[in-house]
Each structure stands twice: as structure tokens, then as C-alpha cells.
Design a protein around this nucleic acid. Sequence first.
DNA 1: CTTTTATATGAACGGTTAATCATATGATAA
DNA 2: TTATCATATGATTAACCGTTCATATAAAAG
Lengths: 115, 115
Amino acid sequence: MKVCDEEDLHEARLKDALEKMPSDGQIEEMGNRFKSISEPSRLKILLALAGGELCVDHIVEAVVGNQSAVSHQLKTLKAARIVKCRRSGKKILYSISDWHVMTIIELAKEHLNCE
Amino acid sequence: MKVCDEEDLHEARLKDALEKMPSDGQIEEMGNRFKSISEPSRLKILLALAGGELCVDHIVEAVVGNQSAVSHQLKTLKAARIVKCRRSGKKILYSISDWHVMTIIELAKEHLNCE
DNA sequence: CTTTTATATGAACGGTTAATCATATGATAA
DNA sequence: TTATCATATGATTAACCGTTCATATAAAAG
């Protein structure tokens, strides 16, 4: 009968979900990426860098933050390998190194306009 | 000279970044979405639901968690309008309601295999 | 070598949040 | 109605994290 079919369907889905579930390590890695881009300050930094490399004080201006906070966030983003940096004279220039992450951010930005 | 050109380029980029920067409200909304899917437990729940609706105790099995924790996370996900639920007899069936978010998760999952 | 400029770091504080435990709700079956 | 099954809720605790302030480093300019 109908109820039984539904039960079976759900059991099958559960089995399927368990099979397709990524490993705990992979889940955590995905989670860490999302966490890296979930803080407004970091999101702003990345959006600012989307147009190309910038030095720290330009980033500070772009995100309207203070120098120390931005520096800490840049450290976090660098540790997550989402940005990289190089020295040029006095300045240190930061830029995106993980464009996968930027793709996700751009996609999320587009989704904002679909509601 | 070269240094001046670089300076000008960076100034132009800063100006551009400031112009294109989404509003604080939009940034926060994006951030909240990413935060919702940054916790391993919630990510697992969503991956489990990707195949179709499941009742709570099946979700509990799929994510290998305990009932109360899962229920709290489901509440969070529902508040974020990422999942919805309906009653069917004794059971409450949860399912994805925001497929934009699932698209992002699937994209991130694919990115895992590119490294 | 000393000063200045640009950036990084460390410690402390406050806020947020996930997990747990115990209990409550609410629908159904007996 | 009472008992039972499925799920939700509230309070508590512990861990995590972002910001701030003060200070450190390190390259470059004088």
C-alpha cells in the first residue's frame, strides 16, 4: 500500500545518502572554506580583491575597517590559501589565489538578485 | 615612470572596488548564508537532503548525530529558509527549499576534486 | 644609523554558538 | 483517555572567533 511504498522510498533515500556522503575530512574542508567567507569583513576583503591586487592600506579603505583587524583577517585568509601576497617596494600587495572560492562568492552575489 | 603607473593602477582599482562593493546589508546576508553551511553537521544534513526529503530520525542516522543536536540544526536551517518541512502521519519530513544554496554546496564539492 | 612608513603580532575581552541533558509538546494508537 | 512515538525546546556549559589596543618587525629613506 501507499504508506509502505513511501517508507521504502525513504529507506532507499537514506541508504543513498549514506553512500554518497563525503568523508568527514572532506566535509570539514568544505565547511572551513565556507567559514572563511562567512565573516562580513573577510567577504568585503575578497570582493575588494576581486578586481586585482591591492596593498593593505587600500584594502583598509575599501572595507572601511582598521589596520589591525584587516591584517588579522588577511592572515586568516592567507592561512586558508584563499589569498596570497608579494612585496613591491614598501607595500605588500595582496591578491586572490583561490579562484574557486571567488566563483562561489560571485554565484552567491548573483543569487541575491533572484529574490 | 613605472612606479607611478602602478600607483595609478592601484588607485583606480581601489575606486572600482569601492563602487562595486555591495551594501553592508547584502554582505551580511551573503555571510549568513555561508555561515549556515559552514558547520559540518549542517552541511551533512543538507547533503543528506539533496537526494530528497527525509524524516528526522533518518537524518539523524545519515549524519550520525543525536536527535536533539540534529533538531537544533534543522531549526537553524529552517530559520535560514534553506530547508522546509511537512508532516506526514507521525513523521515530519524535511527537504531542501533553497536550491541556490545546494548549487553552491555542489560546486564546492566538485572543487574538492580539482586539487 | 636613525627615523619613518607599512604591516604584523600578541594578549585580553566580549559575543556567538554548538552540543548536551532534561523535559515538553503534539500527534497517533490502543 | 492514556500511553507511546516522533520531534522540539530551554537552559547550561564550553569552545571558538573577531575586534581592539599596544607593541613589534622590517624595509626604505634621509
